[in-house]
Amino acid sequence: MSLTSSPATERRVAWRVGTVVGVQQETPRSRRITLDVPGWPGSLGGQHVDVRLTADDGYQASRSYSLASAGEGGVIQLAVDRLPDGEVSPYLNDVLAVGDEVEVHGPLGGWFVWQPSASAEPVRPVQLIAGGSGVVPMVSIIRTHVQAGDAAPFRMLYSIRSPADVFFREELAAAESAGLLSTEYVYTREAPPGSTTPAGRITRERFAAALTPAEQEPTVYVCGATPSSRGS
């Protein structure tokens, strides 16, 4: 049975122990974390995990993080924003090191997922709308799309503070140059040098122009902080 044809419910959701096999600074305020998770059943684009840390005194804390990875294989990838007042994200950003173990619960979620159309289904365009680290589940959806090489047109509106805050820059650029993704970047605090559009929140006109027209019936995914998701 292939992963893409199985309903989400057939993949065993469980707590598993993952070992950190890679950490790298993703943006000035976030870190990319790669985990090897024996027994991991694979995941669909858009799914997430709960990560649980246990202190020496037994105190536990868990948080949900989107997967940037998708598909088969026991290696998964997260990118975690460092929240200054956070309990878990500062630890994951500042302390976690290669070789450390964390508990991972998943793959979770069946609503915010994307799979390529089966051959008999009409192809629906996909519109992704992401703010900041809200791009992480979009990356797993884009990776699924790139791997499948399917015909669905993909557009993304991606709002970040500055050019330095772009997550998964190389992966997004590779999907762009393969003709599988068209991204409109919105810089809210600092635009790239030479940009003709000043930094700032997106205007209603630009928002409308950047999105797939509604009559094309796009599947729309929105992920970001709650105020930006509601405003859209």
């Binding site: 959701v13 997430h48 995990v49 709960d50 868990s62 949900s64 619960h105 998943g106 979770l108 979620g109 069946g110 609503w111 915010f112 998701s229």
Partner: peptide, 10 residues
């Protein structure tokens, strides 16, 4: 949104 309750209810 409700997606966040997947883990606790799973």
């Amino acid at each position: 949104d409700g997606n966040a309750m997947s883990g606790v209810l799973s």
